[in-house]
Design a protein around this nucleic acid. Structure first.
Lengths: 328, 328
DNA sequence: GTGAAAGCGCTAACAT
DNA sequence: ATGTTAGCGCTTTCAC
């Protein structure tokens, strides 16, 4: 094991300059003469020198690392989110320290603590709710914390979320327009804040409209859960509409409706989803859904990281109705 | 900005011990008396002390960071892979520095260089081929490099891949069993090594079996590309079988066949995919495909990272045929 | 078992 | 513009 990257010291010796000259050469604003810079670059090149960012960060207390924690990284929605975020972070010049929480409910606190140890500059949470103590620690240590699509309760941290209530409202209105008289609202058993907001807003609106709603909630947020929901709920022949708070659920529900429960969609049954994951536009589904904008969400997150002084607190991103074919 | 985590120094002062005592307390094998350890822990707790891993890593030249670079992070296959990998890494006690390559062909070299600067212990490449110079640099600096599903050419680095040729062979045999007489093999225009291996092995076998094969190749590796392939290829009424080297392509192809080109699958046309992404098992598709094992792949990657002495070079993971409903 | 001291690779005053 | 010096927070000999 030839452990050992070349150090600035060695480069300096080879170039016949001081080691600060080397440092300056590799520092954006460093004042070095062209001649020296050239010599240094040459020596560095020959030796295969790489700045040591760990040492660099140790000095000026900035690791350049942005911690990202999330669960369920392979779900269509989260992976889209992560894709956009990691790209944006890189473009912004910071790196992404990714911590995968096996279980969003439990694992997230220790992961954030780990991020503290790496002196992450900021922390972005894709799923799960950090306990208050963690949030306090972030504040105490100047680590900016951004929560995506989580609860809106805490006012002392940055929150970026889609306009779930409005989206749910759009869904409700759409189902009313489809003349539904008894609708199901299906959520997973994980009861995430976003799902709750959607389900609650939807239900509230439906009740106001005097439309009967039956709630279903169980299992993980997966296609299979949606499928099961469809099989169970559609035994009831009265249900003629469904709002699935997540596209994954909606797609499963849709398949169950058509393939298992012999419903024609949208003739017998109207379905509206939420998220607009890529699969929602696939020809076999053509799901009518409420779109979250990954780009806008990411942009707001980056904004929250960049803004230095007036801490941005709550940013809500607009959603939009994507009309496809599953609602009459 | 109250920048500033508590340092070991401060903890030491508060606990009334030396700072080495603090260090030892937080070092797995450190020899400290119970009494001191307790005092230190108490002080650390009260002050909210967090070990600084950057400083720690600076010392013993191990950052504990594993670099992961990949493109297309939101594609079903890659995201599954990343999910499993990041989880495995975490369990193994190392963290995952994720770099998202916007373009797998070009961006990957600079990203790996960035990883060098962070003194990543090892680097896992999910997509893209690092140039030889980078591989040499890894070797020179003792950074273990693992490539997943890339080319098999280089013998001086760790390569983990699925048995593409065998998988393609299974697909070919399956299509022969379906009595196909003219088959299409569809790949994306990105010509990744894995796709090439699959297409080549398939074609070779089909020729040996005296079955006509027509190749199609274009665009990015997406559902839409598969759909387009279907629309274009199925103008030819003679085609009665298709091997899509990726499930995403296969799903698009399947939709085009049924929904646009009026083919009954599998009666008129048999389709086999590759990867076994989650969507392949969705009720609307039920795609017959060749499964890669994410778990096995990940396990091999971790093994390649862990094995210290005899460098593991090439590990090929078996694939298996998943019989569903799209092949006669 | 414990403290003192040296040093990891770097940057940032501070001189010159 | 350049070199010298002093840390950044930690671990690790080395004495005791």
């Amino acid at each position: 094991m030839a452990r050992g990257f070349v150090t600035a010291e060695e480069v300096a010796r080879r170039a016949g300059v001081s080691r600060s000259a080397v440092s300056r050469t590799f520092t954006p604003g460093g004042s070095v003469s062209k001649a020296v810079r050239k010599k240094v670059l040459k020596a560095a090149q020959e030796l295969g020198y790489r700045v040591n960012r760990l040492a660099q960060g140790l000095n000026n207390d900035r690791s350049n690392l942005i911690g990202v924690v999330g669960a369920n990284l392979s779900s269509p929605f989260i992976s889209k989110q992560l894709d956009a975020l990691s790209l944006g972070l890189l473009r912004r010049g910071s790196q992404c320290l990714l911590l995968n929480a096996a279980d969003a409910r439990k694992d997230i606190a220790p992961l954030i603590e780990l991020l503290f140890e790496f002196r992450a500059q900021a922390i972005v949470v894709l799923s799960g709710e950090p306990p208050a103590s963690i949030i306090d620690e972030c504040i105490a240590n100047g680590v900016r914390l951004v929560l995506i699509n989580q609860s809106m309760d805490r006012t002392d941290t940055n929150i970026v979320l889609s306009d779930d209530s409005h989206g749910a409202d759009l869904a409700a209105l759409r189902l009313r327009a489809a003349k539904c008289r008894k609708v199901a609202v299906v959520t997973s058993g994980s009861q995430t804040p976003a799902q709750m907001r959607r389900a609650n807003a939807f239900t509230k609106r439906m009740i106001a409209e005097d439309i009967e709603v039956v709630s279903w909630s169980d299992g993980p947020t997966t296609y299979e859960t949606g499928y099961r929901a469809g099989c169970e709920l559609l035994k009831d022949n009265g249900i003629d509409g469904a709002f699935c708070v997540t596209d994954l659920l909606a797609l499963g529900f849709l398949d169950a409706a058509r393939l298992e429960m012999n419903r024609r969609v949208p003739q017998d049954l109207s379905i509206v989803g939420f998220d607009d994951i890529p699969q929602a536009s696939w020809k076999s589904y053509q799901l009518t859904t409420i779109a979250q904008s990954f780009e806008a969400l990411t942009e707001k997150v980056l904004a929250a990281l960049d803004s230095d002084e007036p801490e941005i607190r709550l940013q809500v991103v607009p959603v939009s109705m994507i009309e496809r074919t599953t609602a009459r």
